[in-house]
Design a binder for these strands. Structure first.
Length: 423
RNA sequence: GGAGAGAUGGCCGAGUGGUCUAAGGCGCACGCCUGGAAAGUGUGUAUACGCCAAAAGCGUAUCAUGGGUUCGAAUCCCAUUCUCUCCGCCA
């Protein structure tokens, strides 16, 4: 949620920057500001009314104590009158605030000044490329075939037991999953992150805190009877640790790394993009989250970007980094780098990580603040990134490293799998 | 799931209808004292919104959350959430 004061003081600028995300917010912003004026007027009236009531109640108390109860009845009536007005004002205020919040909560984050204009992924900026795209031997196949040939991932079984998008990992496939999770976590810990094991379901307040609600309501699995959501990413429980928290400036940067299953309904997805591991309803991901002083969040974004790059380097995967254009960015982000690995058999780039700075957008929703040097309470900046999401990494590892003798496992990972050739 | 008890400021804890912007203690910050430190001592110590050009100041709200009773609620009533104890079930 954007900060109200900022909107009030930089209305034109906010509208301009939201236009980069292809959002015409002029009308919404206008309404928000009009509502804000009304809100303040109404609150002033209400506060004054309540102040009068409080004063009279105090007088009544004094009269009672002085034994002049009869003198108080006039005053009691006066408060009764004030109360009628107060009730109306309170209802009016609630209504205005609800309307304003509704508008505010639907407004996306403004993109950073460096974000390129654009509508779709086509307009994203490639900012870095690295690694060699392998020439695959004749007879090479995509990972969904390798999964069957080596009996390591069973999609059919997933269909039977649960449904599409919930595969079983078996034998060395399961071992490979576990190896990747441990590798990613260990690398995170080495980089100074504290490991967290979060709950896999969250309540409504947490969904709002990180911005999944109300924007992505239909994309999360929902457990009706307990009103809990299955997490689409560990970002949600981990960032919400800091909901309603006031940090000390000395605690920056807060660095957490968490492995979790992620659940996504992916409503509306179809076609060949969902083949094999390309898009699943349940998948594994290690997520890094940082909370930082507003003055340093962009340095932190670069640091996180470098961390993710180092992981891909160690996995010997060719990758590129793209800076997302306004139209392709998420609702909550101010600046996002996507990481894509080259999937040699599919002959395409697969997104494996998204590293974002949310500035104060999430912090404002969550009331995540800190005391600055002057003792003033201010909003923190939050950042997160996948480091990394497993399925597409597995797809690329299997495809890129297939040989006549088996699938080669990169050295950094072989320590964890216990084998350097998957046969 | 059943029965009972409870939820107060960063923490502990007092407070069962009016002076509660909540006693007392701990912690923390700053000062005094000291050669320095400890001890001692003094002062301060929440959040949000609003009024104000701004600071100071003032107003309103907040004692788990949401309603209600009352001129007046931390205190009484109702609902919800959470915690603890006992019983049941159970990885």
């Amino acid at each position: 949620m954007l900060e109200l004061n900022y909107i009030r003081e930089h209305t034109a600028e906010v509208a301009e920057r939201l236009a980069v995300k292809n959002i015409d917010a002029t009308e919404a912003l206008q309404s928000i500001i009009e509502l804000d004026t009304k809100r303040r007027e109404t609150q002033k009236e209400l506060d004054d009314n309540l102040a009068q009531s409080n004063n009279i109640a105090r007088e009544v108390g004094n009269l009672m104590k002085a034994g002049k109860a009869s003198d108080a009845s006039e005053l009691k009536n006066r408060v009764a009158e004030l109360k009628v007005i107060a009730k109306e004002l309170a209802e009016k205020l609630d209504f205005i605030v609800a309307e304003q919040t509704q508008l505010l909560i639907q407004l996306p984050n403004v993109p950073h000044a460096s974000v390129p204009k654009g509508k779709t992924a086509e307009d994203n900026q490639i900012v870095h490329s690295e690694g060699r795209m392998p020439e695959l031997p004749a007879g090479s196949v995509p990972h969904w075939d390798l999964a069957v040939n080596y009996d390591i991932i069973d999609f059919e079984l997933g269909n039977k037991v649960t449904g599409a998008g919930f595969p079983f990992y078996k034998g060395k496939g399961a071992r490979l999953q576990r190896a990747l999770i441990n590798f990613f976590l260990d690398e995170g810990i080495k980089a100074g992150y504290t490991e967290i094991q979060p709950p896999l379901v969250v309540n409504e307040a947490s969904g709002y805190g990180t911005g999944q609600l109300p924007d992505k309501d239909g994309q999360m699995y929902f457990c009706q009877i307990d009103r809990l959501y299955l997490i689409p990413t560990a970002e949600v429980p981990v960032t919400n640790i800091y909901r309603d928290v006031i940090l000390k400036a000395s605690q920056f940067p807060v660095k957490n790394v968490a492995y979790s299953n992620c659940f996504r309904r992916e409503a509306g997805s179809y076609g060949k993009d969902v083949r094999g591991l390309n898009r699943l309803h349940q998948f594994d991901k290690v997520e890094i989250v940082q909370i930082q002083h507003p003055d340093h969040s962009y340095e932190t974004l670069e640091e996180m970007r470098e961390h993710v790059a180092s992981l891909l380097r160690k996995l010997e995967l060719p990758f590129r980094i793209v800076k997302l254009c306004g139209g392709d960015m998420s609702f909550t982000s101010a600046l996002t780098y996507d990481f894509e690995v080259w999937s040699a058999a599919q002959q395409k780039w697969l997104e494996v990580s998204s590293v974002s700075n949310f500035e104060s957008f999430q912090a404002n929703r969550m009331k995540l603040r800190f005391k600055d040097e002057a003792g003033k309470t201010r909003l923190c900046h939050t950042l997160n990134g996948s480091a990394l999401a497993l399925p597409r990494i597995v797809a690329a590892l299997l495809e890129n490293n297939q040989t006549a003798n088996g699938i080669r496992i990169p050295a950094a990972l072989a320590t964890y799998t216990g084998f350097d050739l998957l046969t």
